[in-house]
């Protein structure tokens, strides 16, 4: 199983067991392009593998995910949404670390952070290998992206 398959398996497991949402892979992408009305949660990886793991979620999907995560109605992009999307990035990063790390100590994870906005792009300056997977929640799509320094 390659890293792409493992990211798909991990993302589906997180959504099924924690968010209480079943998701499907919609497509594999080369570039996530400009993001609009979206919130991005991310964690950095440092050590034997350097890069970033991010989840890009359009506002309506982010509110639906947070509502399902917390079991309550969410009608605006508030602190709960930022916290929930950041925690999703944290869980994805932790599981990707487990996939990439040989002993658990050779890769360090940053604390999760989030950004959001009406129009922005997301890219590293360095030469990177990218894996971008678009998932369908039934209430809209979101993307999981991993960029690792070559």
């Amino acid at each position: 199983m390659d890293i792409e398959d493992k990211m798909i398996e991990t993302t589906k497991e997180i959504f099924s067991s924690m968010v209480m949402m079943e998701i499907d892979v919609k497509r594999i992408m080369d570039d996530c392009g400009p993001l609009s009305n979206t919130i991005t949660g991310m964690v950095g990886l440092a050590g034997t593998h350097k890069g970033i793991l991010a989840i890009h979620v359009p506002y309506p999907v982010a509110m639906a995910i947070t509502g399902s995560f917390l079991g309550m109605d969410v009608e605006e992009i508030n602190a709960d949404v930022h916290d929930a999307i950041g925690e999703l990035a944290n869980m994805l990063g932790g599981n990707v670390k487990t996939i990439l790390s040989e002993n658990g100590r050779d890769i360090e994870l940053s604390l999760p952070s989030t950004i959001s906005g009406s129009d922005y792009t997301f890219q590293l300056d360095k030469e990177v290998d990218k894996v971008i997977i678009e998932f369908d929640t039934g209430q809209g799509v979101f993307m999981v992206e991993m960029e690792l320094e070559k």
Binding site: N90, M91, G93, G94, N95, K97, T98, S101, N103, G104, R105, L109
Partner: peptide, 9 residues
């Protein structure tokens, strides 16, 4: 309760 569940940690 953590994503960090490597044997060393």
């Amino acid at each position: 309760i953590s994503t960090e569940t490597g044997d060393d940690i």
